[in-house]
Design a protein around this nucleic acid. Structure first.
Length: 561
RNA sequence: GCGCUCGUAGCUCAGCUGGAUAGAGCGUCUGACUACGAAUCAGAAGGUCUGGGGUUCGAAUCCCUACGAGCGCACCA
């Protein structure tokens, strides 16, 4: 627990004790202590911390909130809480003012913990898996995948920082119908490239990249597949193309700063018989029935709108069947919490997937699915429909070439997954200079620059500050910055609990803003040694926190730019 | 038709699970580089939080409803 949290917790405890004391003395009556908030008020004039407890007690106590607040204050033991004054304000808030030195502990804590500052233990080592992107290996990664990648990777890092044992996983859809279509498309392109008149399949993949792949195949193996029977030909072409596509996806994600712990093949679930075994398990439990020659899962028992086909009448299991097996496998590997990041177009699958897990005896709440709205691409003022089949999409690679990895990641991670983001490609490049990521990175570079300057001027920026140095950091700008710096563990805990990494992007923007404001109002490298030492420590701590958060967000923290 | 997710400044978006006077960035306007990086800072203008009801001390936030947007509702994935 961080210093800031410890201080707040201590005050909460004193508030509770004051209320108990008041009740024992008969000044106040209530049965149950409501869950109350102790937080920093938006307006600085309202003090350092404020609580709403008095207003929450009105019903039980049958008294006016301001009266309750008065009773509470009269019974409050301020010893050891840093509280210097309390006042009743507005409808019944209690505002606390703290001894200005309550923040002096923040900097030593940051400096001592270094890149671990911000880590909290709410995860308690629980094994969590985050599956994200899992794009079809039939093409290149696009903008939607970029959003999923930024979100999933940051979420994984965030959870790790919050004390979970996290594994990142990519599920490769290398089986099923789409692979069949992929094979047909490859076959057609292959034969067409070799001059044969061959029709392109209706449901085929029109992407240009497919032609490139086929050209490479011809380069290496010539026309030797023309003579083969079509089954073998398709098999050979698909095997080559999949390998190439998956390698490309891996490389692109690597460039985007994302590396996975596990790449999991859907086909392997079929090959090992695990899909069939899982179907049997469901059958044994009585959740499967036959109708019109197909096997159906009674997903309506678990709140789904309709039952789902799980094995087609032709005997081929559906994608859903494989997905159930896959998720069952996740639990069998020991994950007690399984997080999936899906595009909003898959929201219909959420309840049935949870239902299937419930049918298998797992707690459906341990499967948590984060839906993200799709990315809308704007070009020439028009919305561009993105579709892999039609081959019309902007790839992640192109995106990185246009705006760079850091700007792209920050762009996505800044937004709540629920918001549909618009991405104007025409403005992408010109916007990139305005991208808020540079605001944060610039702050980091500036901080580094100050530390460099200090060294050049013969000062030791690594020197550990003493209490007397830190007590000199009293300006409003210094204090606001300090408070923000000390907030990180709380921010991490909250963001992890809500699974909302975008909070950290907001946090780091706020932090950078407070630093820039401080920078423009006060000088760090001053003559006064005591003050200089204190400020240099503040600079070091701020830089550390900035770097720690950027690391979670997968954005680099440059020393110069 | 049914379901899911949304609707906040001219634009792009936040808003700490119900708190005090709704906030940033971009754009517009006014100022600040002979001191540690001006990719910065200080200030101004800009709002019926889509409309309408309800819940209560208190609603952008919770409930109902209307309108609008996106996405789902295959023996595709």
């Amino acid at each position: 627990m961080s210093l800031y949290e410890r201080i707040k917790e201590n005050i909460c405890k004193q508030i509770e004790e004051a209320l108990t004391k008041a009740r024992e003395k008969g000044e106040l009556r209530y049965d149950e202590l409501p869950v109350f908030v102790l937080e920093e008020p938006r307006e600085r004039q309202h003090g350092d911390l404020a609580t709403n407890i008095a207003m929450l007690l009105t019903k039980q106590a049958r008294r006016a909130p301001r009266d309750i607040a008065g009773i509470l204050i009269a019974n409050l033991d301020k010893e050891g809480t840093w509280i210097t004054s309390c006042e009743i304000a507005g409808p019944g808030f209690i505002n606390f003012r703290l001894d200005p030195n309550w923040l002096t502990g923040v900097i030593p804590e940051v400096l001592a913990q270094g890149d671990q500052f911000g880590s909290v233990e709410i995860g308690k080592g629980e094994k969590v898996q985050v599956e994200f992107v899992s794009a079809n290996p039939t093409g290149l990664l696009h903008m939607g995948n970029a959003r999923g990648a930024a979100l999933g990777d940051s979420l994984a890092s965030l959870l790790a920082m919050a004390g979970y044992e996290v594994s990142r996983e990519f599920y490769i859809n290398d089986a099923g119908n789409q692979i069949h279509n992929f094979a047909l498309s490859l076959e057609a392109r292959y034969l067409q490239q070799l001059g044969h008149d061959f029709p392109f399949p209706e449901a085929g993949y029109h992407g240009e990249d497919l032609i490139e792949t086929v050209k490479k195949i011809i380069e290496q193996n010539g026309d030797k597949y023309v003579q083969m029977d079509e089954g073998q030909r398709r098999e050979a072409l698909v095997r080559y193309a999949l390998e190439e596509k998956i390698a490309a996806i891996k490389e692109t994600l690597q460039d985007f700063g994302v590396s996975y712990d596990v790449w999991f093949s859907e086909q392997s679930l079929h090959d090992s018989g695990y899909v069939g075994q899982t179907m049997q398990e469901l059958n044994k439990k009585g959740y499967i029935y036959e109708k019109e020659g197909a096997q159906w899962l009674r997903s309506t028992l678990f709140g789904d709108e309709k039952d789902e086909v799980i094995v087609r009448s032709n005997g081929v299991p559906t994608y859903f069947a494989a997905d159930i097996a896959y998720h069952r496998n996740k639990y069998e590997r020991g994950f007690t919490r399984v997080i999936n990041i899906w595009g909003a177009d898959h929201h219909g699958h959420v309840s049935r997937m949870k239902g299937a897990m419930q049918a298998l005896g797992y707690n459906p709440d341990s499967l948590q699915i984060i839906l993200m709205q799709l990315v809308r691409l704007i070009q020439d003022g028009e919305i561009v429909r993105m579709s892999k089949r039609s081959g019309q999409y902007i790839t992640l690679k192109e995106l990185m070439d246009e705006v760079g990895k850091d700007a792209a990641r920050f762009f996505f991670i800044l937004r709540d997954p629920d918001s549909t983001v618009e991405f104007d490609l025409d403005l992408a490049k010109s916007q990139s200079a305005d991208n808020p990521v540079y605001y944060v990175q610039y702050a980091h570079a500036r901080l580094c620059s100050i530390l460099r300057q200090a060294k050049e001027q013969g000062y030791d920026p690594e020197i550990n500050p003493e209490k007397k140095n830190l007590e000199l950091l009293t300006s409003p700008e210094e204090r606001e910055l300090l408070k923000k710096v000390g907030d990180l563990p709380g921010e991490i805990a909250l963001a992890a609990r809500l699974m909302e990494p975008h909070r950290l992007a907001r946090y780091v923007l706020d932090l950078a803003a407070l630093f820039h404001t401080f920078y423009n109002s006060q000088r760090v490298l001053v003559e006064d040694e005591a003050l200089r030492t204190g400020r240099l420590a503040l600079i070091r701590a701020t830089r550390q926190v900035l770097a720690n958060v950027l690391k979670i967000l997968g954005v680099s923290a440059p020393e110069r730019m």
